[in-house]
């Protein structure tokens, strides 16, 4: 372990220890089964969003728009599940919404050459107002969608928890061991190498601004699936809260 890691780990442990020292009630609560369950359920969106972010990061794309994908994913999951009366279709809808946002993001960043960070921030703002606008337009209410079908409270029977488990095993393997993963990492590390072996087209001059190998990041966008499904089980925006019933 490098010195930096030890430093970081030590700082994290110190912060947690300090929190527990200040709030002894918190320390007792941590030792219960309910707490472990709650932790797992709360972790699911983080796990999926982080995996999605990690994939694009490896491809050389900074993804600040994860928030936007979660918000629109949550909205789409709730709306589709409500309309079709199927939680599974809701998950698919959430995933598609995440991919749609990714397409918009890449369109702006790669096609038009806009700054990736700015596009990310803008999409987050857009999602903040946009999801509420859509709720208002479709359901006539700015904060919640009507209750929609969900997967119930049992963690082990919740398919999204299993998606998260499988994704956290599958994504690292895919990135490290498959041809797709190799190209993904090459897009982030040496885009010109991808061009040289003929995987990616050389970015045309007008696309050149800020785009490491125009094609591979676009592929990475498909993995946005991971992010948006994160919305359904536990969620911050109320649209999807109703989904977990």
């Amino acid at each position: 372990m490098s010195r930096d890691r030890i430093f970081g780990l030590g700082a994290a442990v110190a912060v947690v220890a300090l929190t527990f020292a200040l709030e002894p009630k918190l320390a007792r609560g941590v030792l219960s089964l309910a707490f472990v369950q709650a932790t797992l359920v709360t972790a699911v969106p983080y796990v999926l969003a982080a995996l999605g972010g990690a994939i694009t990061e490896r491809a050389g794309v900074i993804d600040l728009a994860l928030e936007a994908k979660l918000l629109f994913g949550a909205f789409a999951a709730a709306a589709v599940a409500y309309a079709t009366d199927s939680a599974y279709l809701g998950v698919a809808g959430g995933a598609l919404a995440g991919m749609a946002i990714a397409a918009l993001q890449l369109g702006c960043a790669l096609r038009l050459g806009a700054d990736q960070v700015i596009v990310g921030v803008a999409l987050n703002l857009l999602a903040l107002g946009g999801t509420r606008f859509l709720l208002q337009a479709l359901f006539g209410e700015g904060a919640n969608s009507p209750p929609c079908p969900g997967f119930g409270d049992a963690i082990l029977a919740n398919p999204i928890v299993w998606i998260a488990v499988l994704a956290s095993i599958g994504v690292p393997i895919a990135v490290a061991r498959t041809r797709w993963g190799l190209r993904l990492r090459a897009a982030g590390d040496r885009p010109d190498a991808l061009v040289a072996v003929g995987v990616a087209r050389r970015p045309r001059p007008r696309f050149a601004a800020g785009s490491p190998a125009a094609r591979s990041p676009a592929r990475a966008a498909r993995s946005c699936r991971c992010r948006s499904t994160a919305s359904s089980p536990t969620c911050r925006r109320a649209a999807a809260t109703s989904c977990s019933r």
Binding site: A114, I118, A122
Partner: peptide, 19 residues
């Protein structure tokens, strides 16, 4: 909410129109 959303659209449009 529509005008809230427009604030995001404005930024996105600026980011895209500069290059």
């Amino acid at each position: 909410e529509l005008t809230e959303m427009l604030q995001g659209v404005v930024v996105l449009a600026v980011a895209a129109s500069v290059p």
